[in-house]
Write a protein that binds this DNA or RNA. Structure first.
Lengths: 215, 215
DNA sequence: TACTTGATTAACAATATTGTTAACAAAATT
DNA sequence: AATTTTGTTAACAATATTGTTAATCAAGTA
């Protein structure tokens, strides 16, 4: 009956290590992270880290897998309802995406860096992208084609559009330390900045889609 | 008279180390880079690396300083002629910027990662940004204000515009491994892709600037 | 109670990585 | 030619970092 108590403490240690590892890995990357530092931050001896996760690489894998799952669930769940308009779909993509980035501002930079440093170690993430991105792009392209055929927007490549959206959404947060220095007060209030980017990026993309007024 | 020969060999070793260091640091970051690997790649004993550069950190500093200088010279040399039009200024900024990125595709990711990992170690770079970015933005804002007062474009914030341009230009290359997987054939031919981004991004920004057609 | 199991600790082992040194070689300068 | 400076090497020292092990503890179970 006390198994719950036991179990709780058990998970607690494991969880504390995972949380500390997440912080350390996300801010310093795999190479820069120290297992000793992670153990210290978690408040356990560093042997415990090896007891629970065996190696640094396996611990990293756990963190990466969790984050990949999180990203997948947060992002790749729009564009599926075929009857909602292109405008609304785009607004939804941008809003969801920016909300996720606001909640996980370090994630994009971390993912890209790790993939760059060692494709093998980060393959779990790349695989998921390879599966879901084409689905999302396919759905978006259909909506664009339909809207374009009705003269409501220009005929554009959904891949290019997704790239534009991702660029506009992600870059400012990825490059935050540089942007803060270069743009000073523009990024001072994080919430305000996030809201601004939502509006601004939606506007930018919609303008890109608007039929050229030459008739 | 043979001093030239000697001098050449001398600089040659130093230069070979620097080149190898550049590759290693840019692809693996400071923490992931190994001085032994750098020495091997340069074809010298690893004691030579310490003889010439004393420490790993000092070697890193040399690479970072060089790259910062390169970036500064390539980017912060537009927008100064007050008589060239806003359109042409924007085209010039985008073209110069993308040419530079095409020639140094790893640089943005590297810079941002290093700043993120250790602001102190990368402060040389941040300082330069802090100096030049505001100048560039100031010049651009003046052109926008003028064009807007003449009804040629909307009144927009130059900081936001620069952020949009930087995002659209940099992200695709920074996230290349992910973009390649997500967008497949779009990025297959690098030259073609670069040319496409030049056109596309210019178009995106110009459309953003166009006065809303409601009169 | 004796036994088993999982969690924990402290000390240690193994290795990787950076950095140093002493001896030597080659060239330049006096 | 003698001396000084610079470059080079190989071996080593120092430290950081990951990973292991044997002993101990706590809790539940036969």
């Amino acid at each position: 009956m006390n198994k719950d108590n036991n179990n709780h403490e058990l998970q607690d240690t494991e969880h504390k290590i995972l949380e500390a590892a997440e912080k350390e890995f996300l801010s310093k990357g795999f190479a820069g992270a120290r297992t000793t530092t992670i153990a210290e931050a978690a408040g356990v001896t560093h042997a415990m880290l090896h007891y629970y996760f065996r190696t640094k690489a396996k611990l990293f894998d756990r963190v990466l897998t969790e984050k990949t799952k999180l990203l997948k669930e947060a992002i790749f769940k729009s564009t599926d309802d075929a009857d909602v308009s292109l405008e609304e779909t785009i607004r939804s993509i941008i809003d969801r995406h920016l909300d996720f980035i606001g909640a996980n501002p370090e994630l994009p930079r971390f993912m890209i860096e790790e993939i760059y440093n060692d494709q093998e170690r980060a393959h779990i993430f790349l695989e998921q992208i390879g599966i879901y991105a084409p689905l999302m792009i396919g759905a978006l392209q259909m909506k664009i084609d339909k809207a374009a055929s009705e003269g409501k927007c220009r005929q554009v490549d959904a891949r290019t559009l997704m790239l534009d959206i991702a660029s506009l959404n992600i870059f400012s947060f990825m490059a935050a330390p540089v942007v803060n220095v270069a743009l000073e007060d523009l990024t001072a209030d994080p919430d305000k900045f996030l809201a601004m980017r939502k509006k601004e990026n939606y506007d930018t993309i919609i303008r890109k889609l608007m039929p050229t007024p030459k008739d």
